[in-house]
């Protein structure tokens, strides 16, 4: 089935976390909508608590127990994932959609060899065994440039470096040739040169396997390196979304602007002080009415405290949710 250019469509997704007492509700994701085209790389940028990871987990439907998707639609190849049964969802996971987690050191079961963990999805989804399985595994290990794969497959996670483990996690994630790959802070735990190597690998895999990729990150640098488009989240909502160059060259939301201005840059020394954003991110269980960024916003209007701004279109693909933008 072909659903045109769009692989994934998320419409007004709300994922809330219920507190133990049942009273405290954290609006982790609060009305998020976006599309992902085939072959496209979308960056979801946000701080901790922005809802970026919860959005990713909602798509994969592997939310923690206390979290629930309250409303919305997640269309994957035109089919609503939220309507699928557990068994059906399991068949999609690992086969058509996959994910890389933040810390490779804890992404693999320490008691099993990496080989047996690489074999699992191939056995389950592809029903491979014997020589075809072994061949496929070696092939995958070389796809993520791991030297002497036969030896490595017999080793345990603790015998390898973080960079190597993350490449193995990558190999597992792409083992069944998925259409969608979500990478949640894939390089945050890695050293700089290893991080650069892994981002290269991700790019190569994306281009050679025609993957659509969602990169979840707090780092504009990672987005600048990999993404075609980015979506900036704050307090469970999308505050700005647009092509990567648009966002960097003409950010419109005050949060995006402030974040970009607050990042130090080794190539532009001399500016002694960084522009900082005062205050800290809000408590998602006690969101004020209106725009959640209003208390920290340098250009706040009276209206911002009362009403949440809708989405305003700036260019064909560039949108922002801000009353300032609407006023201009």
């Amino acid at each position: 089935m072909n659903h045109g250019d769009t692989l994934l469509q998320v419409k007004d997704l709300k994922t809330h976390i219920l507190g133990r007492d049942g009273l405290r509700v954290t609006k982790a994701v609060d009305g998020v909508s976006f599309d992902l085209k085939r072959g496209e790389t979308l960056g979801i940028i946000g701080e901790s608590g922005s809802g970026k990871t919860m959005t990713a987990l909602s798509i994969m439907r592997i939310l923690p127990e206390a979290a629930r998707v309250i409303s919305g639609e997640i269309l994957f190849n035109g089919e609503n994932l939220l309507k699928k049964g557990d068994a059906e969802m399991r068949r999609l996971r690992g086969e058509q959609m996959s994910m890389i987690l933040q810390d490779p050191m804890v992404s693999l079961d320490p008691l099993f060899t990496v080989g047996s963990q690489l074999a699992e999805p191939l056995k389950v989804h592809r029903r491979l065994s014997g020589a075809p399985l072994a061949n496929r595994m070696t092939e995958l290990m070389s796809a993520v440039s791991i030297p002497s794969p036969e030896t490595r497959l017999k080793q345990y996670p603790h015998q390898m470096s973080g960079g190597m483990l993350q490449r193995i996690v990558g190999a597992i994630a792409i083992s069944c040739d998925p259409q969608l790959l979500i990478a949640d802070e894939p390089t945050t735990a890695l050293d700089p040169t290893v991080q650069a190597q892994f981002l290269d690998l991700l790019e190569t895999l994306r281009d050679s396997k025609h993957l659509s990729v969602i990169v979840v990150t707090h780092d504009f640098g990672v987005a600048a390196r990999l993404c075609d488009r980015v979506m900036v989240m704050y307090a469970g909502r999308v505050v700005e979304m647009g092509p990567i160059r648009e966002i960097f060259d003409h950010p419109r939301h005050p949060y995006t602007k402030a974040l970009l201005a607050s990042i130090p840059d080794a190539t532009e020394l001399g500016a002694r002080r960084l522009r900082s954003i005062e205050g800290s991110p809000p408590d998602l269980a006690m969101l004020p009415p209106g725009c959640p960024f209003a208390p920290r916003c340098p250009s706040v209007l009276e209206r911002c405290h009362r009403e949440y701004p809708g989405e305003f279109r700036i260019a064909s693909e560039h949108v922002a949710s801000c009353w300032q933008v609407s006023a201009q």
Binding site: I62, R90, R93, G94, L101, V106, S107, L108, D109, P121
Partner: peptide, 29 residues
């Protein structure tokens, strides 16, 4: 709650398999 169990779910493995093969062995330690 561990990340590797989350990753096993990402792989599309059955919950029973995850519990009885991976989680149990780790819990046995």
């Amino acid at each position: 709650d561990a990340d590797y169990v989350k990753f096993l779910r990402v792989k599309g493995l059955r919950e029973q398999f995850i519990v009885w093969k991976h989680a149990l062995r780790n819990a046995l330690v």
